[in-house]
Design a protein around this nucleic acid. Structure first.
Lengths: 339, 339
DNA sequence: CTGAAAGCGCTAACAT
DNA sequence: ATGTTAGCGCTTTCAG
């Protein structure tokens, strides 16, 4: 297998010039560059990343940490990050942990050493010392969907979005509105995702002086199945029923709609349902939702990092990007039936 | 930042011994090992993977190639691969391509060079020359869900599974059975996923001498939304309706059930529906399905690779593992209504 | 703009 | 069991 030495020889230049021509760093005469490039092509030259990385300190690899992969949001996110990274020739190293000392190992070993040029962390909860470590090492990092002081982040305005969704229901005339949020924690490693949404929801309720009932505050694990279960229990139970339901995710909202239908209720006739996400799964049940385009968030995060890496070593400005959302009105929300 | 040299010094041994103690390769006296390990801990030593990789030719990184990330099957797969890899301290490099020369670049640059120790390819269609390259380089590789001659693979017996599902419907008394398969291609890079399932379906139909109608042969893109659309068109259209429907994926089956319900049909009363996957999304609509546990497939693939890497360099035996499935009967299938 | 040469930090013979 | 030493293949000063 040909190395840079063979390429240089064939092109009649030194390995230094070959390296410069190949990497695009430093000046090389057009003629020399041309010869190097074609020599490389002739020989089927492929750079050794290990060697390059050892010598230069750059690895052309970005680490991505997610709480789990199999969820609509995070897999879309990954999709976006992957494509942004690949089109710049960067590698993506994927990490996901939720138990044991894996967290320590990943954060310490992988992030702190030359292995990674940058990190995108989704919902990752960094404590002070971890953050300090990362910043000390000078690794660019961006958070998606979580706030860590001092770290650039991309996220939606959870509070405002939840409030907006709730106000949509209120605007339609609903006063009895239930809340289906995410289960509190994904463990200590990651941010709970729906805390701010819950607050936005209640803020809207309070402003409109709607009744607030703890019986109408549900939590599920973000899946269709659990949303179905929890909402079925609520609707089938005794006591007054809400006329509308706010869900922290579309998947749970779909579960909720199916549960309502199974009990003989109509949506939106007997129950209006709104979700957050823009998960296509909602289409088939006509779910009204607020779309947040996670793939775009992912590629945006990657681009910020890539730009930073291209520009050089100055520390990252802790910018905070609030992503745009679309309000998608379908058929799951309507004015409440008059009683 | 401390290197192996400092660690060796502090432990009072040579770097060679330190290296051996740290990596576990070669013999080191318990005493020396102890001293090295504690010196490493004291200094917060973290190995440089670039250097290690350059010197040893091993990168402790496994490449994973998937057609896309955001689908239940592939993200479950990834989940399984990730956890198997992480628990052995391996890194996972994620690739996904569907256009441009990315394919070439990934296959040539990444797989052929020292960057990766092994590869798991999901549904990846390798042509002869690519395969030859990979085998020449001696990189262990396992395919999931696709057959490439000479490459070890993990997959279900698509034909048998589809046949089994179809025979379940036939066994209930159905004779008018429609087929909802996957759209033919994901591009030239990957295997179409449902070809064998389609054949198994028709084999069962032929054996039972059921009628076969091209009008009842649908294709969708594996999503709930598209399944919904296609089935709604079928059921709302003129002409005889099937009494049962076989779907190549649970997501499409869910779409089908929702479409049927929206048209006022009951499932399974007017239409029995069966899927393949074991996607939890089917739970909420009572979908009968054949579960295939992709996460398990992923970790199995990773374990095969890891074992091979641990054992040394002999070429991989092109074993072919057929994964187990579970038949999960819920409420979407029943005997046809007598007409 | 180009070349010579000194490493990057670790591993693996080889020798002891 | 341990130490010595020669690289792994590339990048990057530093001279020219």
């Amino acid at each position: 297998m040909a190395g840079i030495k063979e390429v240089a020889e064939r092109a009649g230049v030194s390995t230094a010039t070959a390296s410069r021509a190949l990497s695009g760093r430093g000046h090389v005469s057009p003629a020399a560059r041309e010869r190097v490039l074609s020599a490389a092509k002739d020989l089927g030259y492929v750079m050794s990343y290990a060697a390059s990385s050892l010598a230069s300190g750059r690895s052309r690899t970005v680490g991505v940490i997610v709480p789990f992969i199999n969820s609509w949001f995070f897999s879309e996110l990954l999709e976006g990050i992957t494509s942004a990274l690949m089109s710049e020739g960067y590698d993506l190293s994927l990490y996901s942990f939720d138990r044991q000392g894996q967290r320590q190992r990943v954060l310490a070993d992988y992030l702190l050493r030359k292995r990674l040029d940058a990190v995108v962390a989704a919902s990752l909860r960094l404590d002070e010392s971890e953050l300090k470590q990362l910043l000390d090492v000078g690794k660019p990092i961006v958070e998606i969907g979580g706030l860590v002081p001092g770290v650039p982040s991309i996220h939606l305005d959870e509070h405002a979005v939840a409030r907006f969704a709730t106000e949509h229901l209120i605007g339609l005339g609903h006063r009895q509105i239930a809340h289906l949020g995410g289960t509190a924690e994904t463990g200590p490693d990651y941010f709970p995702m729906s805390t701010d949404r819950r607050e936005g929801f209640y803020a809207a309720l309070r402003d409109a002086e709607c009744e607030i009932s703890p019986r109408w505050d549900l939590n599920a694990d973000y899946t269709v199945a659990d949303g179905y279960r929890k909402v079925k229990t609520l609707l089938a139970g005794p006591g007054p029923r809400p006329t509308a339901l706010f869900c922290s995710s579309d998947a749970m909202a779909v579960g909720a709609i199916l549960a309502a239908r199974d009990l003989g209720f109509t949506v939106p006739g007997d129950l209006s349902v709104i979700g957050i996400d823009g998960n296509p799964i909602g289409e088939a049940v006509g779910l009204t939702t607020i779309a947040q385009f996670p793939a775009r968030q992912g590629s945006q995060a990657a681009e910020i990092l890539l730009e930073h890496l291209a520009a050089g070593e100055r520390p990252m400005a802790p910018q905070s990007v609030v992503v745009e959302t679309d309000f998608i009105v379908r058929s799951s929300t309507a004015v409440p039936a008059s009683r």
